[in-house]
Design a protein around this nucleic acid. Sequence first.
DNA 1: ATGACGGTGTGGCACCGA
Length: 258
Amino acid sequence: MKIATWNINSLNVRLPQLLDWLQTNPVDAIGLQELKLTDEKFPFMELEAAGYQAVCHGQKTYNGVAIVSRHPVSDVVRNIPGLDDEQARVIAATLETPQGPVRLINCYFVNGQAPDSDKFVYKLRWLAALEAFVKSEMAQHSKLVLVGDFNVAPEDRDSFDPEGLRGTIHHTPQERAHFQALLDLGLTDAFRMFEQPEKSFSWWDYRMLGFQKNRGLRIDHILVSDAIKAQTTACTIDRAPRKNKQPSDHAPVVVTFG
DNA sequence: ATGACGGTGTGGCACCGA
């Protein structure tokens, strides 16, 4: 089984690249973030032709998430129950795989802009609500995978300039404490289960030749429950699509298990 | 200190992302 996550920064623009990527990387399911389109404009037909079905929680201009899967999906949840949130950032579903059900939670975490901003307050409130949601989901599903654009660089080694960016957005102790709180629920950062190249990142700024200089952050993550962890054999970042013409600023992350 | 790049909207630039 392979599950991926990719912030594609507009599905309208990136659909051809997504279809290309799925052809060379036939994952069982992928969580997409930043669709930037409404459900009516979601490309169900094109994905179906590629062998995938999808459930989505779209929104105009900003946000928007989807789960695209080769397997049937059930029990779809959109947004965090109990959180009054007008932004479409969460979709969860159960993948009905031949090896049994796998719960997949796909999130586009709040950016937060700057630690002294209202958006940062929203980010922390959103993170606390997410933790409660994931906790309740874990109580119901032993095989659970939490994927998405977390907008948190968990450790110094996840940033191209940990000293210079200390205390700035993605790097604050508060954000890192929330990431740890998710791990404390019984989840494991699949990427760090394995030896990885130095300076492994999943996002690079479009500006200032960020990708060419590898000035990036590792902010896209795959967290797995213990039942999945025991079966996990690999987790990689695929930098190839970042070299495409008109790339997303994020690269896909893929976990292999079972 | 600022802007740099890219996507979106009903635009003639502003806003947002990270």
